[in-house]
């Protein structure tokens, strides 16, 4: 069964009060957390002049566009236009929202009308995200212990230990991004270095 949810990052990479760029297939998004930890994901353009909202700034429970400082609440509605401080912005001015959920240490994105919940990855520990300039096929060719399509899982042996690995695949125009999790007792540094080596092998497969 396939899911419409796509992982766009790991929770520890998006602290409260921070905005980052996310992606759901070809849709670029601004993903942000308010001061109190509320998550939101919107199309990455301010309705005013098209500026990327992922370049903006979070104050309290609002995200502001860096260009003209237009202020948006977590519901996507424009709350304040600094050029016209006494104006109540019309309701029609709003950012286009996606669904965004933080679950098991992973940030998941899906279109707003998604009905199912994101996949569960209980018992695993988030490691890091890293991008590859190759596609999924080259990655699979580089590591035979991994199986799956959007979510790759397997038991990988390095340093004399078998480590449970889970890679969430996020497609990009020029490759893929992997959001990696591992078994709860694994050594994070060792897994991170294994991921670097895996990337090296996978990208080399393409070069061959």
């Amino acid at each position: 069964m396939t899911t419409r949810w796509i992982a766009t990052g790991l929770c520890h990479d998006l602290p409260n009060g921070v905005v980052m760029a996310g992606r759901w297939h070809d849709t670029e998004l601004a993903v942000w957390r308010s001061a109190s930890g509320k998550l939101a994901a919107w199309k990455d353009r301010c309705p005013h002049r098209g500026m990327r909202l992922s370049h903006g700034f979070v104050r309290g429970e609002t995200l502001s566009c860096i260009y003209h400082g237009w202020v948006y609440g977590t519901d996507g509605g424009c709350k304040h236009i600094p050029a016209h401080p006494s104006l109540v912005p019309p309701k029609a001015i709003r950012a286009e929202a996606f669904s965004c959920v933080a679950l098991d240490g992973v940030l998941w994105l899906a279109p707003a009308d998604v009905s199912e919940a994101p996949p569960r990855l209980g018992g695993l520990r988030p490691v890091r995200s890293l991008s590859l300039t190759c596609g999924l096929a080259a990655l699979m060719a580089a590591e035979s212990a991994l199986a799956g399509k959007d979510i790759l899982r397997g038991s990988v042996t390095f340093g004399g230990h078998a480590v449970e690995i889970c890679l969430l695949v996020q497609p990009k125009p020029d490759g893929i991004t992997l959001h990696a999790l591992c078994g709860a007792s694994a050594d994070l540094v060792a897994v991170s270095r294994w991921l670097e080596a895996l990337r090296f092998k996978a990208e080399e497969k393409v070069a061959e």
Binding site: D44, H48, M51, R52, A83, H84, L87, I93
Partner: peptide, 21 residues
């Protein structure tokens, strides 16, 4: 700023972007 406006072309049809006074 200029390198991060979407779309890169200037929209001339109203509706694509919302101006104020």
């Amino acid at each position: 700023i200029l390198e991060n406006q979407i779309p890169r072309l200037l929209p001339l049809d109203p509706g694509m972007e919302i101006p104020t006074q």
